[in-house]
Amino acid sequence: MMGKFITIHSYKGGTGKSYLAVNLAAIYAMQGKKVALLDLDFRAPTQHVVFEPKGLKNYINNVLDGSMNIGDVLLDCSYKIDNKGKLYVGFADFSTEAIREMVSKGKKWEIEALQRIYRMRKELVDDLGFDIVIGDTSPGIQYLSINAVVAADVAVVVSTLDDADIAGTTRMLKELYETFEKETAIIINKAIGGTDLKDPEKDKIIEDLQSRYKEAVIGILPCFCEVGRLKRGNIFILNNPKHPFTEMLRVVAAKLDLF
């Protein structure tokens, strides 16, 4: 099986990208695939809260700076899924100084990062033999996120049913994803009113998206209170294997496999 680099991206923040990324990574790992989850959200890192790594010194920031290889940065976090699979994580430096430094990086640095992301992808897929690499990116159209999307084999866009989110996502799909002929999958998350409350307006948005993007819409996930209630440190699909959210994510993972 040829390895695949999947980015999880969105137009706006708060769509549940990081939550979906970690749960999808866990599903794939528990299916027996060798999985790497990369926190590419350098402006607001999240995955360290989920995995609580101790004494971490190497970050993906070092890979993008050219001072390390991705192999030196990945941490075996399989314990987090009770060793039911192989799950490695690359963390973004979450110190305030590092975030400030990433924000202030020049345009030239961000441009050069594209080549390093391609190298990182090659090392992970070709040299280290990962089956699935999931990149959890920053929301919006900024260089580092665009770089990750451009280098991806499959780009997953997560949107809510919020008007502004849908409008921005649609524009982003047309102006960025279609330009690069990306293999694109769309997930509607926190679909409040759409599938659960049968709100006709929200249902219309979903119908429009499905008619425009057809099979690219791989999941419409309702808003489950229990999903939001669980601490990030507890991976939902592991603790709730029979919950409808877990079942839906398994379907999403299977559909992503077909890309």
Binding site: G106, K107, K108, I111, E112, L114, I146, N147, V150
Partner: peptide, 12 residues
Amino acid sequence: EADNGSSGLSVA
């Protein structure tokens, strides 16, 4: 100039 910088590859 940054777009045309030393790297041959960029989104631009």
